[in-house]
Each structure stands twice: as C-alpha cells, then as structure tokens.
C-alpha cells in the first residue's frame, strides 16, 4: 500500500536541516518561508484570540446596587429583589436581569443571598411556608440564614454584602458565580 522500498539517496526533505541553514540556499529558503508563515499566522491569530477572550483583559467589577427603599421590606420576611447586572452589554435585554433573596433580619440588618444553589447553580426558591430555600434540580435545602439544611449542596448560599444608604437598601454584587 505504502512507500517504495528503495529511497533515492538525496531525496529532498520538508524539514529544515538546521546545521546547514546559513550556508545552503535550499535550507535558508525553507527558513524564510517558515518565518513568513509564522508571522502571517501571528498577525491573524493574536487579535482574533485576544478579542474572543477579551474578558480576561478587563478587570471584574463589584458594584453597590440599590434594590429598594428601606420601608418596603418587612422584618423577618424573605423577598426576591430584581436588579440589573451593571457589567453587561447594552443589548443584553432581559438576560442582564438578576434576582437576589433579601431578608430583613431586624430594623437595621439585612441579609442578601445569591439565588444560585451551591451544588450546581440552579436557582433556589424561597418556600415561605416551610421557611426554607429549596432547589428544584437536586433537592438542595437551605435554612433562612442560607446555611445548608439538607441535600447535596457543599456550602451555604453565597451572601452579598448589604448596606443602607439614604433610605435605600443596597447590595454589593460582583461576578455572580465566581465567589467560590
């Protein structure tokens, strides 16, 4: 199927013979061609790859986001607050909307939890009757303080820092999933 048995003595080779590259015209021309090809490749590839992975070149941001007026929240109640991701693109539309669970613990204290289950990231629901967060994917359960009550989650729900500024409740949101 394959090659002929006898090879001619001086069969030309594709690979560069580095020992003669500066004295042999053939070898030198190979080198010139390889360098040119590599140059073209780099010119084409670097901006393309840099563009496709631009997010590594932009630092992550954390922002304090207003989620509502202080009076709106009842002590002891856990509610969903919806806000917009400030790091998104102008044409994100609804996919830049986010929800967090916000609990007014008492007069001046709030707790805000990411909706993502720490097991696989599915959105947990607050079941007011049971006073538990439950995950629809694999049955992770959390208590009202975000600690794990049952099921597979390895960690408590992620907490966003909260503060009250000028009568507004604010939460500090960074990358939604990368808090580890």
């Amino acid at each position: 199927m394959c090659c002929s048995d006898e090879q001619p003595k001086e069969e030309p080779k594709v690979a560069i013979n580095w020992s003669t590259v500066l004295i042999s015209r053939t070898e030198f021309l190979k080198l010139v061609s390889v360098v040119c090809s590599g140059f073209i490749g780099m010119i084409v590839a670097i901006p393309a790859i840099g563009f496709a992975f631009e997010y590594f070149l932009v630092p992550s941001r954390e922002d304090w986001i207003k989620v509502g007026e202080l009076e709106k929240f009842e002590p002891g109640k856990t509610v969903a607050v919806v806000f917009r991701d400030t790091t998104g693109l102008p044409w994100d539309g609804d996919c830049a909307k986010r929800t967090a669970w916000l609990r007014r613990v008492d007069e001046g204290n709030f707790e805000a939890f990411a909706v993502n289950c720490t097991h696989l990231g599915c959105p947990v629901r607050w079941e007011a009757g049971a006073e538990l967060f439950m995950c629809p994917c694999h049955g992770g359960v959390y208590y009202s303080d975000g600690s794990v009550a049952g099921g597979p989650p390895p960690r408590p729900l992620h907490r966003y820092p909260t503060r009250i500024a000028k009568g507004q409740v604010e939460i500090k949101v960074g990358p939604v999933l990368t808090e580890g």
């Binding site: 997010y55 790091t87 994100d92 999933l177």
Partner: peptide, 23 residues
C-alpha cells in the same frame, strides 16, 4: 468552578465574562 486553581478562569470562559450575558 469546582476545578482547583483554574475554576474561576473556566467560569469566565464558559460565560465569556463574569456573568451570563449577550456575550
């Protein structure tokens, strides 16, 4: 995210940024 060391990096590759977005 569970991958050691490179977890957060992989997340950024998957989301093409810090979050799910148009990107």
């Amino acid at each position: 995210l569970r991958a050691p060391f490179v977890g957060p990096m992989l997340v950024r590759v998957l989301c093409s940024g810090d979050n799910v977005s148009s990107a």
